[in-house]
Design a protein around this nucleic acid. Sequence first.
DNA 1: CGGGTTTGACCAGCGC
DNA 2: GCGCTGGTCAAACCCG
Length: 320
Amino acid sequence: MEKKEMAVKTEDAIGSSSFPCYNSNLYPFSNAFDFSEVDKSSLGFMELLGVQDYSPLPELPQLSTVSVQPHHSTVKVPPDNGKECSEVLNHQPATPNSSSISSASSDAVNDEQNKTLLDQAEEDDDEEEGQQKTKKQLKPKKTNQKRQREPRFAFMTKSEVDHLEDGYRWRKYGQKAVKNSPFPRSYYRCTSVSCNVKKCVERSFTDPSVVVTTYEGQHTHPSPVMPRSGVSAGYANNFGSVLPPGNYLSQYQHYHHQQQQQHLVNTLSSLGFPYNDSSSPKNAVFTQERRLCSNHGTNAFLRDHGLLQDVVPSHMLKEE
DNA sequence: CGGGTTTGACCAGCGC
DNA sequence: GCGCTGGTCAAACCCG
């Protein structure tokens, strides 16, 4: 099946300024959905759908309320802040070769290695200079090196609460007003020592019912709060091998898994979407075990399609 | 008292 | 260079 390039439309929810995003070909879950077309009446309280773009299912984007979007390179956002989206919507990946999934992983690794080296150098510098710092003498400027950022993943969630429970503990370290948005952006850091995962949370000003959560980095520890025990690793593969077991999305995904799938089933059924016997709502097996098993392969995400896999006929999901 | 939040100040990057 | 904006810091504050 030929992959269709999906739109990357995050600026509506994010607000102004540039918003980096991964090449959608490199990261199979970097699809995005047009929230303006979401059938809001069919949406539950909170829904998450971190799935691949399934071209033969044109209805699905309308059902989806969450855009899982790893991002890396910068997508320029029009200055009028989301009014003109075609530029981003029609964004073509620089490397349209869909076989570049492995290179995506290696890129991520290279980025991580570069980051590690840079951070080490910076830490060495900071160790020498840190003692002399006062509140008014903050970090010395690093003019020769651009700051390396961890890969970031953004996803949108229809939620009434800003700070979603994802199984990890977070400390808020900042809040900023967002340009052209009445809603502030909150910054959180993982409270675990030696884990520098950060996330920022803001509410979409175009759809206040949507919360945009952007994660940066990967947890170096298991989740301290397991919504349900022992299943977190099983969902990591939903977002590709670049994410380790116990990642933030996996807990969150599992947390709402049952409701989402039931909702998906109901919605697809209401649209007359055909099911075969093995994937009908009646017979669908929403097991955690399947995910746990499929998590072991490095290319597991090629086989596991998240929530859709449970309700959409397998032949529709098959990639060519 | 420890951990989390608030909030103003500061820094870096970017565009003009 | 300047201004704007996103991101971060850290003191003050809050709360259990």
